[in-house]
Simulated assay, not measured.
Amino acid sequence: MSSQRKGSEAAPYHVLHKLPPGDSPYVRAKHVQLVEKDPGAAIALFWKAINAGDRVDSALKDMAVVMKQQDRAEEAIEAIKAFRDRCSKHAQESLDNVLIDLYKKCGKVEEQIELLKQKLRMILQGEAFNGKATKTARSHGRKFQVTVKQETSRILGNLGWAYMQKGNYVAAEVVYRKAQSIDPDANKACNLVLCLIKQTQYAEAQAVLDDILRGKVIGSDEPKSRNRAQELLCELETCRSSSVFSEPSGSSLEDAFVEGLDQLMSQWTPYRSRRLPIFEEIFRDQLAC
């Protein structure tokens, strides 16, 4: 214990508090955010950093995140739209991810869907990941590698969830099936079950649920996934026993991305030469309906 204490005492202040080094406007904003824990003052300092051109990529993204935490999501959306042109090309993908979260927070489903479609098109064109097969992501301070297949499945999962918020369970089902064919997990499988229940496709819903409950899907052994699967099973049994017939919800595919999934390959053929082989493989085998 004493050696650990000495190590902590010897660590530089910015390392101890997970702050960037220096005394610039951005560093002061991070200090106020993380050490003084004053989000309002931190936002004001992030604005100063952006206007001063100090680490604009990080300042804009961090400010938007703090604004979201302070229920100022609408303001954060406008800030990103107004100042993202000051950010580097490498920062645009991160800003898009923040925007998607902000749209979700504000209930802007249409905007969320359009941005998710755009991200899928970027993957198809080979523009995501800067043309590489993997990228380094960060979550809760931990770095890890994400493959293009995992990212594609994640985006499709988010797109499926957005369609569910619109009540378009037909489109959501197709998108979730695509996501599961690329990189399956229990969370997306549960969402697929709900889509099937909403469309009264009870036999198919039961089949997917059985795979989850038997541990055949990645992540199905986690308590949260098993609990949700059990809840869906109860809902399925209730729907089956109900004698009231209702039309399946969300049957309209008018603006569904399902059509886009069918046409992606032909639509973006002119960009074929710009794609890496791994992009060709994924979208030929996984996104072609």
Rank of each mutant, 00 (worst) to 15 (best):
M1E: 12
L16I: 12
L16R: 10
P20E: 09
V27Y: 07
H31P: 14
A41W: 05
D54Y: 09
A64Q: 04
D71Y: 09
R72G: 05
E74Q: 08
E74R: 10
A76W: 01
I77W: 11
D96G: 04
C106H: 07
I113N: 07
I113E: 05
L124I: 15
Q125L: 11
E127A: 05
G131L: 10
A133V: 11
T134I: 03
T136D: 13
A137K: 15
H140A: 08
T147V: 02
N158Q: 10
N158F: 04
L159K: 13
G160S: 06
A162D: 00
K166S: 08
K166G: 01
Y169H: 15
V170C: 13
A171E: 01
A172E: 09
E173P: 01
V174G: 02
V175E: 00
R177A: 13
K178I: 05
Q180G: 14
N187R: 08
Q201K: 15
Q206H: 06
L209G: 02
V217H: 07
G219N: 04
D221M: 14
Q230E: 09
V244G: 15
E247F: 06
S249T: 04
S251K: 08
S252K: 14
L264F: 05
Y271T: 11
S273K: 03
F279C: 09
E280G: 13
I282A: 00
D285G: 06
Q286P: 10
A288S: 11
